[in-house]
């Protein structure tokens, strides 16, 4: 664990050094009215940039959260599956869980949450 932290901290250090170098070398001297304006193909930016987005993306993120949580619940099985201490009940439980997940996908599909038509 300490070694993981040490590696991450080393990465942070390297990143911050590079950031400082980049900020020092890339300091901007002249800044007019046009130069810092957001890029919109040569036009003046129209309205706010934080535009509303399609609800599809939000729905997809919600489905993703559900599946990701279920996958996290599935992960402990990796360490025990195939071992001699895992009885048939364990396998049956795993199988039931996986079939429920597949049933969940098919249910979402049938309900139309996975469609991408507008």
């Amino acid at each position: 664990m300490e070694k993981v932290m040490l590696s991450v901290l080393t990465a942070c250090l390297l990143g911050i050094i590079l950031l400082v170098v980049g900020l020092f070398l890339g300091v901007s001297f002249y800044s007019g009215r046009e130069k810092p304006s957001p890029f919109e193909c040569g036009f003046d930016p129209m309205g706010s940039s934080r535009v509303p987005f399609s609800l599809r993306f939000f729905l997809l993120a919600v489905i993703f959260v559900v599946f990701d949580v279920e996958i996290v619940l599935l992960f402990p099985a990796v360490m025990v599956v195939g071992g001699s201490w895992m009885w048939i009940t364990g396998y049956v439980a795993l199988l039931v869980f996986l079939i429920l997940l597949l049933g969940g996908v098919i249910h979402e599909w049938r309900e139309g949450s996975l469609e991408w038509e507008v």
């Binding site: 957001p38 535009v51 987005f53 997809l60 993120a61 599946f67 990701d68």
Partner: peptide, 23 residues
């Protein structure tokens, strides 16, 4: 954060794509 419409749209697309394939 970059306050640009193109950037925001690209980021949303990238996010949806990445999380879908992560599963």
């Amino acid at each position: 954060t970059s306050n640009s419409k193109y950037a925001l749209l690209g980021a949303i697309r990238a996010m949806a794509q990445t999380i879908s394939y992560e599963v």
